[in-house]
Nucleic acid binder design. Sequence first.
DNA 1: ATTAATTTTTAGTCATATCTAAAAAAATAT
DNA 2: ATATTTTTTTAGATATGACTAAAAATTAAT
Lengths: 227, 227
Amino acid sequence: MSFILKLVVTLSEENYLKAIYHLGKQGVNAVSTNAIAEKMDTKASSVTDMIKKLAEKNLVNYIKYQGVSLTKEGRLTAASVVRKHRLWEVFLVEKLHFSWDEVHEVAEQLEHIQSKKLINELDVFLDYPTHDPHGDPIPDKDGNISKTDKIILSQLQVSERCMCVGANDSSADFLKYLDKHHIALGTQIQIISKEPFDESMTIKVGDVAINISKVVSNNIYVKSQTL
Amino acid sequence: MSFILKLVVTLSEENYLKAIYHLGKQGVNAVSTNAIAEKMDTKASSVTDMIKKLAEKNLVNYIKYQGVSLTKEGRLTAASVVRKHRLWEVFLVEKLHFSWDEVHEVAEQLEHIQSKKLINELDVFLDYPTHDPHGDPIPDKDGNISKTDKIILSQLQVSERCMCVGANDSSADFLKYLDKHHIALGTQIQIISKEPFDESMTIKVGDVAINISKVVSNNIYVKSQTL
DNA sequence: ATTAATTTTTAGTCATATCTAAAAAAATAT
DNA sequence: ATATTTTTTTAGATATGACTAAAAATTAAT
């Protein structure tokens, strides 16, 4: 007889796992206490406390003073939260008339609702979306994400064409900026010129040419349309 | 200049307000500490603690040893939670293939999501439903419950009499079912007994007693005949 | 009208998740 | 290599929301 206890993960723990998940993807293996504290807008001492609890539950690997990484189970839990977050974002935009800069706050709450059936049926209802309204991939039930060949707009050369597939910065300010200039998922963009001095670039969106700063071009994900 | 602070109500507080709201409707004005404790499956001492906090926030009227009642603001907050709960139940049943007995647990979580826009848009999306899948009325934005005298058959108690005034489900199958059992507009119905296990009920139609399922009693509108 | 039973409140604990301040370890600089 | 700075951890405190056990108030019973 085997006892499989459904591990109870609190809302707070889910948020920590999610933060570690996002930080861990940025290349590094072990995530530092300070990085987590900054991401979660809390204090390093609070992070240490929580990490110990997560380690106790076998959700993270933790060695004192050497940062943390997710265990297989921790990664799965985090991916599940991210999956829920992004599916809800799709729901809010496609069904409830939210704009892409309004969804984050609400999705932060909805991502913690516990119900396998709920999220599976939501997935069905939305017709199995692969990306959220910001272009970020939605992990599947097993936590796997489809590897897209998205690149950063600033990396393109003059005269190249591309299609917007996402935004790196998902702050309301940035998304509103994109809205204002009619840049959304699927928008066609062509590089007109690049200014070496400040690394700004002029791009054509529809029939309109606009100049965008390096900060902006660094935060727009595109798919190259090699014609 | 006036400072209007959006009162922060915690998840726990919302659940207490909801319990008091439901208990308060059952006739009595002041709700007892013990009644709340039983409803919430907690201890009376915990209830006293929480009631003090709610009184501090002007959400309940509280006199020691004399029970509590909701203030206007408390009632509005509670009604808002109930509204959210029931709208989500409609969503789960109508859009996500939940059955009526599966919705409660999930709606208990969803009712605490904070976003005015979310619930307003959900209301639009569901086409302004007036009742949840169990036949309970959905409070409007101001906390008012539609005072129609048509109620759903499943809400009646044993021995009550009523008259059929409509059908909620107007599918051919359902209407044929009603025909077969001689239920039509104006038909007199009396509740003989209710079965807690599957929530079916036995009713008397004319001189014939028949057993009808919850699905059926949920879809028959009646006008109570308080004799 | 007292006594007995019940209900409600108070007092003191506990667990969670946070914080500040101080100590310990690691990384960096001279 | 030692001193300085930064990072991380520990220790102790706080707020929330729950609990147990005992005291106080109310209600019911004789």
